[in-house]
């Protein structure tokens, strides 16, 4: 079986286990803000109409 390691941002950095916890990959708030900034216009445009128009039949 392939050896794979789930890794996140900063996954190569040494883990900080001072508190006895495994350091978890932290979502970078700046990167989240930059992303939201970039997509804000697209999301604001006709958001309600866009969402409401997505209707499909049920699948399995």
């Amino acid at each position: 079986m392939a050896q794979i390691q789930a890794h996140g941002a900063g996954g190569d950095e040494p883990e900080d286990d001072d508190a006895g916890l495994v350091a978890a990959p932290q979502a970078n708030t700046d990167a989240v803000d930059a992303l939201l900034e970039d997509i804000d216009e697209a999301l604001q445009t006709n958001a309600e109409q866009f969402v409401r128009s997505f209707v499909q039949k049920g699948g399995q």
Binding site: G8, G11, L35, L43
Partner: peptide, 24 residues
Amino acid sequence: AYHDISPETGLAARMERDGLIATV
């Protein structure tokens, strides 16, 4: 947008590049 699988209109590809979604 989170579930949109397009690299242009979906978010996952960019979020992976920016380290906001981890990969295996």
